[in-house]
C-alpha cells in the first residue's frame, strides 16, 4: 500500500467518522437522559437536510449554506423540544416507557418521512456544497468540502461538550441524566430540561443532515442508513459518557474505510453487526463506557 492510498483511506475514514460522531452523539444524549431509543433520529436527519435545502433554493453560495444550516438547526431544535411533550411526556412514568417510546418514535419517523415525500417529492437532491475543488492531502486529492465538514462537525461536538460541562444549563441537563429524582428535588424543571435535550439532539441531527445532504444526496429515506450506523456506533462506544460514542464513531469510520480496502466492502455490515453482538455480550456498557451514567 502506498502512502497515497493510506492517506486516501485515512481521509475517507475520518470524514465518515466525523459524520457518524455527529449522528450518534445526538442519539446518545437522548438515550442517556431518558433511557429511550429515538427511532425518529434518522428521519430528523432527513428533515433537517430538506429544510436546509429549501433555504439554499433562495440564497445560494456559502451564505446560503450557512443560513440553511442555521435555520435548519433552529427549526429542528424547536421541533425536538415539542416532540418531547407529544411523544414521551404523556407516559413518562408508565412502566412500559421504553416500549411506548419505541412505537411513538417509529410513528413520528413515518410521519416525517412521508411529510417530506409530500412536500419535496421523491427525487434525489443535493444541498449545493459551498466549497468545490480539491486539496492535496499527503499526496492525494480530496474535496475541500469534506474537510470543512469534518472541521465543523468536530467544532459542533466540542461546542456541545463545552455547553454540557461548562454552562449552568448544560450542568442541569447532566444532573437530570445522572439522577432524575435528585434533580427534581433540587427544583429543576425536569420536563423542560428533557425537552431541551431532545431539542439538542434534533439540532445535531439537523446539522448531520445538512452535511450528509451536501457531501452525499438527500431523499426522503436518507435517514435510514445513518440510523443503523448510529446505532452500531452508540453500542460500540456505549452511552454512559458524552465522549464515548465519538471515539467509537471514528473507530467505525476508519474500520469501514480500511476493511473495505483490505477485505471486501461486501462483508462490512455483517462484521459490524457481529462486532455489536460481541461487544454487548462482553461489555454491555460499551467499549468506552463506565458503569455510571453521565453526559
Amino acid at each position: 500500500m502506498t502512502l497515497e492510498t493510506f492517506a486516501f483511506l485515512l481521509a475517507s475514514g475520518l470524514v465518515l467518522g466525523g459524520l457518524y460522531a455527529l449522528m450518534a452523539s445526538g442519539l446518545a444524549v437522548v438515550w442517556t437522559t431518558l433511557g429511550v431509543f429515538n427511532f425518529a433520529h434518522g428521519a430528523m436527519i432527513a428533515l433537517g437536510a430538506y429544510i436546509a435545502w429549501q433555504v439554499t433554493q433562495y440564497t445560494t453560495g456559502g451564505a446560503g449554506f450557512l443560513l440553511g444550516a442555521g435555520v435548519s438547526v433552529a427549526i429542528m431544535f424547536c421541533l425536538g423540544f415539542a416532540m418531547h411533550y407529544v411523544l414521551v411526556k404523556p407516559f413518562e412514568l408508565h412502566a412500559n416507557l421504553v416500549l411506548l417510546a419505541v412505537i411513538t418514535t417509529l410513528a413520528a419517523a413515518s410521519i416525517m418521512e412521508n411529510a417530506i415525500l409530500l412536500s419535496w417529492g421523491p427525487r434525489d437532491k443535493q444541498i449545493a456544497p459551498p466549497f468545490t475543488g480539491n486539496i492535496e492531502f499527503l499526496g492525494t486529492a480530496i474535496g475541500i468540502h469534506d474537510f470543512v465538514i469534518l472541521a465543523i462537525a468536530l467544532a459542533a461536538l466540542l461546542a456541545l461538550a463545552l455547553f454540557l460541562r461548562r454552562t449552568t444549563a448544560g450542568r442541569a441537563l447532566r444532573a437530570v441524566a445522572q439522577n432524575r429524582e435528585a434533580a427534581e428535588l433540587m427544583g429543576f424543571n425536569v420536563s423542560r430540561l428533557v425537552a431541551m435535550t431532545i431539542g439538542l439532539s434534533a439540532a445535531t441531527a439537523a446539522l448531520a443532515g445538512v452535511f450528509v445532504g451536501s457531501l452525499r444526496f438527500i431523499s426522503p429515506t436518507v435517514g435510514t442508513d445513518p440510523l443503523m450506523k448510529s446505532l452500531i456506533v452508540v453500542i460500540l462506544g456505549g452511552v454512559t459518557r458524552f465522549t464515548s460514542p465519538i471515539y467509537a464513531a471514528f473507530i467505525v469510520g476508519l474500520a469501514e474505510a480500511f476493511s473495505a480496502y483490505f477485505l471486501v466492502l461486501y462483508w462490512a455490515p455483517a462484521v459490524l453487526f457481529a462486532m455489536m453482538i460481541i461487544v454487548l455480550l462482553i461489555k454491555p456498557e460499551g467499549l468506552f463506557g463506565r458503569r455510571t451514567r453521565t453526559l
Binding site: W31, G35, V36, F37, V98, V102, M228, L231, I235, P269, A270, F273, A274, M276, I277, L280, L281, P284
Partner: peptide, 13 residues
C-alpha cells in the same frame, strides 16, 4: 434496552 439492541443486531446479521 440492551436486549432491544442485541436482538436488532441478531436480526440484521
Amino acid at each position: 434496552i440492551y436486549v432491544i439492541l442485541v436482538t436488532i443486531a441478531a436480526a440484521q446479521l
